[in-house]
Amino acid sequence: MSIGNANSPEEDRPSPDDGSADRPADGPSIGTVLKKARIVAGLTVEEVSSTTRVRIPIVHAIEQDDFTRCGGDVYARGHIRTLARAVHLDPDPLVEAYDAAHGGRPAPTSAAPMFEAERIRPERQRPNWTAAMVAAIVAVIGFAGFTAFSGGEDTGKKPVAEGSVSPKPAPTQSGGQPAAQPSPATPTVPKPVKPEPTDSAIAAAPKDMVTVVLTAADGESWISAKDHSGRTLFDGTLQLGDSKTFTDKESIDLVLGDAGAVQLFVNGKEIKDDFESGQVERLTYTKDDPRQGQPQAG
């Protein structure tokens, strides 16, 4: 049974018109080739969607040769290449088959209109540096003449405005040395106290229950969580910074689409496994875990 079916609304399923009119008559269609390769690789549609970032309804539609949900030929070619690489196929023959069924690759846009626009564009006028230099010289000569004319006046005395207060002399110590002025007190700001890290991410995890906390610490990840009876607790994408908590009296089954992006706590203890980015992991935990920090096989 596919894990991610609960995350695909009925209205997002591809329409019955799957583009069968565009399939080549001399071999299997593009969607059929991609679907068979995915099944041979042992991957589900949800796992392919998680690793390629192509939405689940679009993967379903392409496998049924419905390319109307791709948003155009450019996006359709890109999705075909991405899905082919995910299932270990050479994408070039599939893209060529798509081009042959949809009128071929569009012709490149001619650059002639751009050159025509450049030819008729008016030439920008350059600044008149000669006029600017003449104006600067005139300004310098005028300033020099004004300075020479007013140089005979006594500039040693500085007039004091009427009603102004003359500055008081600084207090001196014995011997004529100026006394030290007290500096204003600088208020001290207390430094924030960082909380000490604890071994438990959950203050009080119930002893008779299994408690699993998932946090998308390094990026978004598609996850699925089920209880011991197989009932789905959550099936969707955990955005960056989001957290989910799951509890059950016996066990929690997990599927992580990108295990390297998820921070995992089980019964109050962090599970520190070296999951790689983009790695799909199936995990199972009980109320007795973690056992020496290792999850059970899923």
Rank of each mutant, 00 (worst) to 15 (best):
V138P: 03
R81F: 03
K191P: 15
V160A: 15
P113W: 02
N267P: 04
A297D: 11
V255D: 06
G175Q: 01
E153C: 11
A144P: 04
G260S: 06
S174N: 12
Q294N: 10
A297E: 10
D248R: 01
D17G: 14
D208P: 04
L264T: 08
Q181T: 12
G163R: 02
T44C: 00
E276F: 09
A131Q: 08
R77A: 00
A101R: 03
S150D: 13
S8L: 14
P169E: 10
F146Q: 04
I141H: 09
T130S: 13
G142S: 10
A86T: 01
V266H: 07
A161P: 07
P108Q: 09
D227V: 07
V140F: 10
H60Q: 12
G230H: 01
G176E: 02
A217L: 03
W129S: 13
G230Q: 04
F149S: 12
T215M: 03
I62N: 00
W129Q: 14
G260L: 02
H228W: 09
D227S: 08
L43A: 14
R81S: 01
R23G: 12
T186L: 15
S150F: 13
H88W: 05
V213K: 13
K272A: 10
T44I: 02
F149D: 11
L89T: 02
P184R: 05
P57S: 10
D18V: 13
A25P: 10
E63F: 03
D273F: 12
V189C: 07
C70I: 02
D218P: 03
D248A: 10
G175L: 02
D92P: 02
T237F: 07
D154A: 08
T232K: 11
A170C: 09
Q296F: 06
V138F: 12
D92L: 11
L83K: 01
G176V: 05
H102I: 07
A61Y: 02
P122H: 05
A84N: 04
T188S: 13
T109I: 13
P184D: 07
G145I: 02
S110Q: 06
R119Y: 13
D99I: 00
L238I: 05
T247K: 15
V87E: 00
L94P: 05
E47Q: 04
E276Q: 12
N7C: 14
K287S: 15
P195K: 06
V189A: 08
V193Y: 06
A84G: 04
T232M: 06
G152I: 03
T286H: 01
R23W: 00
G257Y: 05
G175C: 06
M133I: 14
